[in-house]
Design a protein around this nucleic acid. Structure first.
Lengths: 157, 157
DNA sequence: CACAACAATTGCAAGTATACATTTATGGCG
DNA sequence: CGCCATAAATGTATACTTGCAATTGTTGTG
């Protein structure tokens, strides 16, 4: 039916427009951080924030870089003070990477800023409107299914 | 009131979750492209797609890089065949950059894929649900206001 | 016309990411 | 214990981005 297709097209367009708005929020929260660390470096920090300390191998696997690449990337963010290398007592050939307090702050701050930005946008709306948005967003997120963290890492989220 | 704050928090959380879902869609559409061009290069292509041919100076200003950086970046994507250099007839010291058909395809394809992904997610929903999502997304996008393209460029959108 | 202003490019240099091959240190197992 | 597998780091090389300074070509103006 023509009408259904029209409606579907409008729905996708609305979602695209909303996605632009949401991405603007994300971009704002990332922009500041990217003046401090590079995107690949931020990916590492975000991953450590959500997963806790990780082995070099696991970390490299997760963000999709070779061990040699990761090793030198870690060199740099250790030097900058965002993470710490720890040899695991149980197996001394394994190296654990963990966020320093400074690294933790960096990630937390970016995420908080994002949340605040969204809250500020919503604050202009009535309770009914907020309620409608909550339901719709929850519905969409469910329909989209689990978003794999690997995908999100591409954009450093 | 406590209840309002609780509700506001839930609203922001729902928006954050939805943003993660939408960002996943974006990330998928960008991931493929990033195996072909770098993020800064893709930023140039997206900007040319939305603004049409641009002078070197304007282009560099828009994406926030020095002229020397841009000049060499353009060298590479000219070499790769995504854009073309044109000297403007009116003022022969100005150089216009424009997408080649190949470059146009690259950007268009990424955007279409993003739209298709969203459409596919929505296709699982009932008409009522879609309708609710459309209204809510449109509402949110309006509340968020215009998202400047400079911000979006950060993420390569 | 000569000279200043402008647009873009080029010279030079450093930082980062990435890849492939090799090396060092450690753990597991016959 | 000796050997092989594993984990990480290093050696070496290339490509991209970025920055500052200097240069080339063009436009506009006194």
């Amino acid at each position: 039916m023509i009408h259904d297709e029209d409606f579907d097209a409008r729905a996708a367009d609305a979602a695209l427009t909303a996605s632009r708005a949401l991405m603007g929020v994300v971009a704002r929260s990332v922009a500041g951080v990217l003046e401090i660390v590079t995107l690949p470096q931020f990916r590492v920090l975000v991953l450590l924030d959500t997963s806790g300390p990780l082995r070099m191998g696991v970390l490299g696997e997760a963000i999709g870089v070779l061990p040699s690449t990761l090793s030198r990337a870690i060199d740099r963010i250790v030097e900058a003070g965002w993470v710490r290398r720890t040899t695991r007592p149980a197996s001394r050939r394994e190296v654990l990477i963990e966020l320093t307090p400074a690294g933790q702050n960096l990630v937390t701050h970016a995420l908080e800023q994002r949340r605040d930005n969204i809250a500020k946008i919503l604050s202009a709306l009535s309770l009914d409107q907020k309620s409608a948005i909550v339901s719709a967003f929850e519905l969409f997120a469910r329909a989209a299914g689990e978003t794999s963290s690997e995908e999100l890492l591409i954009l450093g989220i």
